[in-house]
Amino acid sequence: MLIKILMAGFGGQGIMSMGQLLAYSGMLEKKAVAWIPSYGPEMRGGTANCSVTISTSPINSPVVTEPDILVAMNRPSLDKFEDALKSGGKLFINSSLINRSVKRQDIETYYVPANELAGLLSESKVLNMIMMGALLQVAPLVSPMSVMESLRMMLPESKHHLLSLNSRALQMGAAVFKNQTAKENSIVAG
């Protein structure tokens, strides 16, 4: 297994953390992983994206030009990276912020209203965990248990009270696709 993932959005959406968490989880599962950030000089706002490679054999190039999976958290990210996605690849769209449908016909698209779902938890900061839950439900790259274990290790102890909130967000994201195919999901979003 060699999967290349590109995650993109604007600064503050937790794109970098989401990618790091995925890489960390892969490492805990003894997979080869790499995480590469790309962002401008701004502290917040601006565009941010990161690429994650997860593999069961050593990784040659960690540079992702044609991802197998694209996570687009806002409209400019979709506009910029839609064409780069590999044919047959999976596209995850934050449908709360993206008001257009996908142009490509040769990919699987999954719509996740991440901001709205985060609103239900009264915490906008967990929208990345909601997206992560949805992603892992469709593409089981790592187990949600590894994600929670990684989060426990990445967060300082003073933040451990947030673990249960993050766990709920992860489950909420997964629930979007529990009993649904991509086609049904696009009809719902359509």
Binding site: Q20, A23, M27, A32, V33, A34, W35, I36, P37, P62, V63
Partner: peptide, 9 residues
Amino acid sequence: GILGQMMEP
């Protein structure tokens, strides 16, 4: 710059 900023085990 990629090598400096990337994370690997």
